[in-house]
Amino acid sequence: MRKTSFVLAAVAAASFALVGCDVQKTREGSVDVPKYEVSKTQEGQVTLPKYDVDAPKVDVTTEKKEVEVPKVGVYTEKETLTVPKIDVTPAKDRDDKVAEKK
């Protein structure tokens, strides 16, 4: 249980960190792809096989049965845990040296 809540907190923190990003394009990109020419050298023919399939008949119904079911008591108690605390400052609001490089 503790591991699950820690993982959920980490995923939430990563999501908040991505929302706070400030992205600036610093260079234009370009892509040159090679050019190809393709020509047909012969005619093609495709014949797909045929199948006759007889599927089984399936009937799904319900019926009442009496079975023994274990009963478990559920209780909670307070416990002090160490959990991550995450503060996110969006990039445009930062006041450190990294944000000044814009």
Rank of each mutant, 00 (worst) to 15 (best):
Q42C: 09
V98N: 14
G20A: 01
V46L: 09
K101F: 04
K92T: 04
E43P: 13
L48D: 09
S39R: 08
D52F: 05
A55E: 08
K64F: 01
D87P: 04
E63K: 05
E37S: 08
T41L: 04
E63V: 05
P34I: 02
L8S: 04
G73P: 13
P70H: 01
D22K: 13
R27C: 09
D59E: 06
A14I: 07
T47H: 07
V33S: 07
A12E: 06
D52W: 11
T26E: 10
V69A: 00
K71W: 03
V83Q: 06
D93W: 04
E28H: 05
E77G: 15
P34L: 01
K102G: 12
K65C: 03
T62E: 07
V74Q: 06
K78N: 12
T41A: 04
S39N: 08
S5H: 12
E28A: 07
V11F: 05
D93G: 05
P56C: 11
V38R: 08
V83D: 15
L18D: 15
T41N: 04
A14N: 02
I86S: 06
T26S: 03
V83Y: 07
R94W: 02
V83C: 07
P90E: 00
D87S: 10
G20V: 00
K64L: 11
P70S: 00
F16C: 14
V46T: 04
K40Q: 02
D59H: 15
Q24Y: 13
V19F: 14
E37M: 13
L18V: 10
A13V: 01
S39Q: 11
C21F: 09
V72A: 05
K85E: 09
Q45Y: 12
T61L: 04
T61I: 02
L81N: 05
K25G: 03
V53L: 04
E63N: 08
K25Q: 12
A14T: 07
K35F: 15
V67L: 02
K50V: 10
G20H: 00
K97S: 11
V72L: 07
K65M: 03
Q45C: 06
Q24C: 05
S39T: 15
V98G: 10
E68M: 13
E100G: 10
K35A: 05
V46S: 11
K25D: 05
V58D: 01
